[in-house]
């Protein structure tokens, strides 16, 4: 019988198939890392000539003169940075309270069918493509803002900010809701046993216990708003300008790339300058995502 057992110890087809599958699956596994590195490498590579050539860092960060196509081109990105910041900032101002409030309602108050319906609606909100949002900004919000506020132009910080706020809301709501749900029920029960109302429990137990998750939710929302392209391009007015009111038109970093890349010559300074904006966008979102991940990891450790 010992002989039979030893005879069975052969590497058969199944063994080799398993080995091959392991290698293939591993390749798939590291693909995400390969792609993220690839993105960094390729975007940097195309921008490198510009970074070491025509780029003047001081001008880039302090000048609002973005004139890549003039005879004497200047690449001041300040207005674009301010544009992105103002739209994202305004969006967050509207969206953070609403999203967190909605997350609280869905996680702590809503039950059964209401909860399911709300979650599905939030998911639909996330599904609307950004070009449709941009179109909504141009064709619905634009005339609406003109009529309500009696201003000459409805494309600007207000319009893009509201659109962006709605776009960033689903990710914040979903992540925040997950964070609230992650607070163990025993905490809630313990506090309720002491006679606290549900609202007191939320305020004094649930929110403090999930604050890292809520912070991560806001960070991811900021990242989403910061990187949004089509909607901002279409709803912000796309004018190089340091805004003084929410009705002013602005221009975002992302939108600049989207609107100009098609007209550049491959390898030119202008082309490189747009990729340099890309490097900036990549790095900032990378830091935001990394921070959110570290913050979330902090909760799990506890």
């Amino acid at each position: 019988m010992a002989a039979t057992a030893a005879a069975m110890d052969r590497r058969d087809l199944a063994w080799y198939t398993d080995r091959a599958a392991r290698v293939l699956v591993f390749i798939g596994g590291i693909s995400a890392v390969v792609f993220i590195l690839g993105i960094f490498v390729f975007v940097t590579k195309e921008g490198l000539d510009f970074v070491f050539g025509a780029l003047n860092l001081r001008e880039f960060f302090t000048s609002i003169e973005w004139r890549p196509t003039s005879n004497n081109p200047t690449y001041g990105a300040l207005a674009l940075i301010v544009g992105t910041a103002s739209v994202t900032g305004f969006a967050m101002l509207c969206s953070v309270p609403l999203s967190l409030g909605a997350a609280l309602f869905i996680a702590e108050f809503a039950t059964g069918k209401t909860r399911e319906t709300l979650k599905i609606l939030v998911e639909m909100l996330a599904a609307i493509p950004s070009v449709v949002w941009g179109f909504v900004g141009m064709s619905i919000m634009h005339p609406l803002i003109i009529r309500i506020f009696d201003v000459p132009l409805g494309l600007g910080v207000l319009n893009a900010g509201l659109i962006l706020g709605l776009m960033a809301a689903p990710i914040m709501t979903t992540i925040a809701e997950d964070a609230l749900k992650a607070v163990p029920d025993t905490y809630r029960e313990a506090a309720e046993a002491l006679g606290a109302t549900r609202w007191e429990v939320i305020l004094k137990v649930v929110i403090p216990a999930s604050k890292n998750g809520l912070l991560a939710a806001v960070l991811l929302g900021v990242g989403r708003g910061f990187g949004e392209t089509m909607a901002v391009l279409m709803a912000s007015g796309h004018a190089i300008n340091l805004p003084t009111s929410v009705f002013d038109s602005v221009r975002a970093l992302t939108a600049t790339i989207a609107s100009e890349l098609g007209d550049t010559v491959y390898g030119s300074d202008h082309y490189g300058a747009l990729f340099t904006l890309g490097i900036l966008l990549f790095l900032v979102t990378f830091v935001i995502n990394l921070t959110a991940d570290v913050v979330v990891r902090g909760i799990r450790k506890k």
């Binding site: 019988m1 010992a2 057992a5 030893a6 069975m8 110890d9 052969r10 590497r11 058969d12 199944a14 063994w15 398993d18």
Partner: peptide
């Protein structure tokens, strides 16, 4: 050892488990 053979010496551990 199973059947006198160290189980870590099996080249095809799946054959071992199938026994």
């Amino acid at each position: 050892r199973i059947n006198g053979k160290d189980i870590n010496d099996w080249r095809n551990v799946y054959a071992l488990r199938s026994r």
